[in-house]
Write a protein that binds this DNA or RNA. Structure first.
Lengths: 239, 239
DNA sequence: CCTGTTCTTTGTTTCAAATCAAAAAATGTG
DNA sequence: CACATTTTTTGATTTGAAACAAAGAACAGG
């Protein structure tokens, strides 16, 4: 992945299949009138660029996306990671303030802006998403402003453990044996680094440290087995 | 100011005077039915603590407030600075996720949660605020994750220059001679440090550097004369 | 106006993470 | 499956900001 400092260009239009029924992933208010189109992205495809005209909002039905911003010299900061149920694309202005890129293959529900304005149900759901994102951003602000590299990585890992790091966790995942969980990162080391405000080398080193301490086991690059959830949790700086 | 790691306790109830008319500071949709109460805080008074039950939301009519979070060991991160027109207190849950403290004397408009639910006008305004805060948090995330100390302070100063750092700037302020502006910080060095993810010493040193370079002049502790807006702007990392 | 307190600045030292460099794994492709 | 490419890991060194320390300014209150 080259770190181009591009901008402009827009949605890579894909198969806009009119899909069956609203998936039951919504924790909130059952069905949300499945009038809209669906949109599919493959991994690392860009949905929209910062500065593009904003005319629709999206709900992640499946897969993982990220929002990021670039500085002119190429430094990147991932500002948000979106998973099933999360919404993206809302803005105060008529342009997007971040670039949205798929981390994995992604399925999206597409809503027109006016569609949101007319549906109170949808509006309510969008609002819930906004508030939940805001809260998460507050938490992430603390991470970036005040936590050590080890604390950042530990916090990141905990956020992937179902029912431990808030709502935003990776898929179904196994919650069988206590203190023995597997999490799927869905991000490269570089993406994790750009999310946690670190370098790729530091992320790698911290993961190695945790491995050496026996707290985690790296199954695949992308998949980490957390041997000791409590141990990791102690390292987040929050306990 | 001692850095207590307290929590609990609640709103220091003050003079809930029923005030005249809606102030005309609202850029949005003229009058917002001035049914509500007003609330006044003096500098460094806490409006609510993280974890307190959330039952009302507030609009800053005058003065400056901050939202912050504490880690158990006392590290603090200021996650947002609120000025006239900004709203605070909305949450996904029934508790606040941050502590809200006045940086200066503050006047607030108080809205009951149900009040917001019933007024479409108010709801619309709250939404605009949410989106604008979100956008600002994204920008601040980049600052905390990727910018140097110098870039952080320069960005902070620019945010206080009217019509240069987005909406969130200090009061009316003078926009007379080009390239000659005075900004009021409304924050101590410690508060700035906790906002920018730095230490008080680093903030002080960077300000001294800017002083030596002749880009700024410190009038009072709290008030900085920006001699060369372009110069500071070049240092934000965004140009 | 003096006096204690708090806040800010400046100097010195330390350290965690960045940078630079290169080997080792993993991944993809003809 | 061998080869080229990308990603990750590990090592050595540098560096920017933190931590520690202390002097100097600003401020509050009697």
């Amino acid at each position: 992945m080259e770190r181009v400092i591009a901008s402009g260009s827009c949605v890579a239009d894909g198969a806009a299949s009119l899909t069956e029924l609203d998936n039951e992933m919504h924790r909130e208010s059952g069905s949300k009138s499945s009038s809209g189109r669906k949109h599919r992205l493959s991994a690392h495809e860009v949905l929209f660029y910062e500065g593009d005209r904003a005319d629709r909002i999206y709900e992640v039905l499946d897969g993982v996306m990220m929002l990021y911003k670039l500085l002119p010299d190429g430094r990147r900061q991932v500002v948000y990671v979106l998973r099933a149920g999360d919404m993206l694309g809302f803005t105060n202005h008529d342009t997007f303030d971040c670039t949205a890129e798929a981390l994995t293959a992604v399925e999206l529900q597409v809503y027109e802006t006016r569609e949101v304005a007319t549906s109170p149900l949808l509006q309510h759901y969008v609002n819930r998403c906004l508030l939940s994102q805001m809260e998460h951003l507050h938490e992430h602000t603390v991470l970036l402003g005040r936590k050590s590299a080890m604390e950042r990585v530990a916090t990141f890992l905990m956020s992937l453990v179902p029912d431990r790091g808030g709502a935003n966790c990776a898929g179904p995942a196994n919650r069988d044996a206590p203190d023995m969980r597997s999490v799927v990162l869905s991000m490269t080391r570089q993406e994790i680094a750009d999310y946690l405000g670190l370098t790729i080398e530091t992320v790698s080193r911290v993961i190695s440290q945790l491995k050496r301490k026996g707290l985690i086991k790296v199954e695949k690059q992308d998949s980490i087995h957390i041997q000791n959830v409590c141990g990791i949790c102690q390292l987040t700086g929050m306990h």
